[in-house]
């Protein structure tokens, strides 16, 4: 497989492409009903239609801005609290039990309360996304700090670094790989929670497109929304990996974490 490593990813296309062809053929032959299971050609047409009218772009933009803002808030808060409880014994004893307790509540259970507190519009949606992102990032940073190699910290002490310098020059670089991994899982959860938020009631966004498709009996727009989600999720993750890669090239792992 070495020689073809550049094209190895093509292997991954075999299954989805064959499925699509089988599906298309099945519908054309009248074996499967095309209305509830629209074939790839129909999906392509409705995606094109949605894109031409500008609708798809509006939905994508609405969803992405919710994820972007929610992710930024959740990731920032998760990182800050994780650093705090990871680095300070007092903060850990004081805050971690509460945070772990709140984590035990399934995040979707917050929906009614958020709507009651923050209204049905944007704020409650952002809050839900931020909450979903917060926990994996918090846990990642917190446990990474606990797991920083004592031996490297000792190197800092022997060479005369102050406590603050040890945090900046040893602790933070050491937790970088786990932090980035936790941001990635946070981003994944952000995508999950943005759908939940948009399904609760929205006038735009890909979640709205899903719900609208269900109410109008249009399986094609549901599927278009789902596929768009998949592409966006993959793209967002890819961008994150691309940004993170130069920061982590020093890692000595069999397979890179990314």
């Amino acid at each position: 497989m070495r020689a073809g490593a550049g094209r190895a990813w093509l292997v991954g296309l075999i299954v989805p492409v064959s499925l699509a062809i089988a599906w298309e053929t099945g519908v054309r032959l009248g074996v499967v009903p095309g209305r509830l299971m629209p074939p790839p050609s129909a999906l392509w047409h409705s995606a094109l239609g949605l894109a031409r009218s500008g609708e798809l772009q509006d939905h994508v933009l609405a969803t992405l801005s919710r994820i972007g803002i929610g992710f930024a808030i959740g990731a920032l808060a998760g990182t800050m609290f994780g650093l705090l409880t990871g680095a300070s014994d007092l903060a850990r004893l004081l805050l971690d039990p509460t945070i772990q307790g709140i984590r035990a509540i399934p995040s979707l259970a917050w929906v009614p309360l958020f709507i009651l507190w923050l209204g049905i519009f944007e704020t409650s949606k952002l809050a839900l996304v931020a909450l979903g992102v917060f926990f994996p990032v918090y846990l990642g940073v917190f446990s990474a700090i606990q797991g920083v190699d004592r031996k490297l910290v000792e190197v800092g002490r022997v060479f005369g670094l102050s406590r603050r310098e040890i945090v900046w020059r040893i602790t933070l670089p050491a937790i970088m790989p786990v932090w980035i991994a936790s941001l990635r899982s946070g981003l994944g959860l952000g995508f999950m929670f943005v759908i939940a938020a948009e399904l609760m009631g929205a006038s735009e966004g890909l979640g709205f497109l899903l719900l609208d498709g269900q109410q109008m009996g249009r399986a094609d727009s549901i599927l278009v929304a789902m596929i768009t989600f998949a592409l966006l999720g993959k793209l967002a993750d890819g961008i994150m990996v691309a940004i993170a890669r130069p920061l982590l090239c020093w890692q000595d792992t069999v397979r890179e974490r990314l």
């Binding site: 031996k151 022997v158 050491a174 970088m176």
Partner: peptide
């Protein structure tokens, strides 16, 4: 006072 440890203990990100 400076030290060399049993393991190299280099900072892998430097």
């Amino acid at each position: 006072i400076s030290a060399v440890f049993q393991e190299p203990r280099l900072l892998p990100w430097l």
